[in-house]
């Protein structure tokens, strides 16, 4: 049993973090140059031939940086449905993809193609006014659909969102911690008051629990493990709620400034809620977990033996 990322994966995390700190809004071509678009695409098709764990690292870091481009839509959502030629064009940065889920298409305006149940569609339609302006939803126009080689993988997408939620939660916590160390009232930094600090301690604990579930789900997806479906549902349910709560506590800790348009927190808060709402709210996912755990044949406590 080894539940840690490899040195190479940790190095990728550091590279991603420092790159995004320098450049929070990179061009799509830069992501292609960095090799992020083809992380799990085979080398023969121009990718890096790595796996979902490396992508998981990037989803978390992109969530932390609140990246606004269609990386989640392309890599986290559409990728498993694509054929070889399409994958090669994704890796090179020529094509951006999304998918239609529950009648809605994330980032419709900034992608080229959309995966639908009936096949691939040109990304044409109406972009809808969306609470999270950094990841707008759209509705596809009617039109031709061409068959696709693969199909969507909900577990993989939910695991990606769980990782992204962990990044959001961590950033909200970090912002709150910095603020309450600095902000003085009654002659002391407000982080000294337990009514403030204990809530942030709760955020820390929930973020770590969310991280454990998200990495568990990511590993299951990477390995094609039979628990992937339930792990991903559990992880997305818990991590998205943790991210929303982390943002709410961070906003409260910031006081008035946290409630302004000017401060970045509201954008994290909206992203957290976007993640919470997409492809199953936590309650819907918990219903799936309950069905699974309550099945008589299961003891509900998986123990893995190689």
């Amino acid at each position: 049993m080894n539940f840690s990322f490899t040195d190479e994966q940790e190095q990728l995390r550091q590279e991603a973090r420092s790159f995004l700190a320098r450049k929070p809004e990179p061009q799509w071509s830069e992501l292609a140059e960095l090799g992020w678009l083809g992380v799990s695409i085979s080398e023969a098709l121009g990718g890096a031939g790595l796996g979902f764990l490396e992508e998981a690292v990037l989803f978390e870091e992109l969530g932390r940086a609140l990246y606004a481009g269609p990386y989640f839509a392309t890599v986290g959502l559409a990728l498993p449905a694509l054929g070889e030629e399409q994958l090669a064009r994704v890796a090179s940065g020529e094509e951006r993809w999304s998918a239609e889920i529950d009648g809605l298409v994330p980032d419709l305006a900034t992608v080229d193609w959309v995966v639908t149940e009936a096949g691939a569609a040109r990304a044409e339609g109406e972009t809808l006014s969306t609470m999270d302006e950094t990841r707008q939803l759209g509705r596809l126009a009617d039109g031709d659909r061409t068959p696709l080689a693969g199909s969507l993988d909900r577990s993989r997408t939910l695991a990606a969102l769980a990782c992204e939620a962990v990044g959001v939660a961590q950033q909200a916590l970090d912002l709150a911690v910095e603020y309450v160390k600095d902000r003085q009232q009654f002659g002391r930094p407000i982080g000294v008051y337990q009514a403030v600090s204990h809530r942030l301690a709760d955020t820390y604990v929930e973020t770590e629990l969310a991280r454990s579930l998200a990495y568990w789900a990511a590993w299951c997806v990477a390995e094609g493990d039979e628990q992937a479906r339930i792990a991903a549902a559990a992880a997305k349910a818990f991590a998205s709620e943790a991210a929303v709560a982390a943002c709410e506590r961070a906003i409260q800790a910031h006081g008035g400034i946290g409630f302004t348009w000017e401060h970045v927190l509201h954008r994290y808060y909206k992203r957290a809620q976007w993640i919470e709402a997409f492809w199953g709210f936590p309650a819907a996912l918990r219903a799936e977990v309950a069905d699974w755990a309550m099945e008589g044949a299961r003891d509900g406590v998986p123990v893995r033996v190689a």
Partner: peptide, 13 residues
């Protein structure tokens, strides 16, 4: 059930 797994995998980490 979910939070039990969260504790368990946190222990693993």
């Amino acid at each position: 059930w979910i939070e039990l797994q969260a504790l368990k995998y946190t222990n693993y980490r």
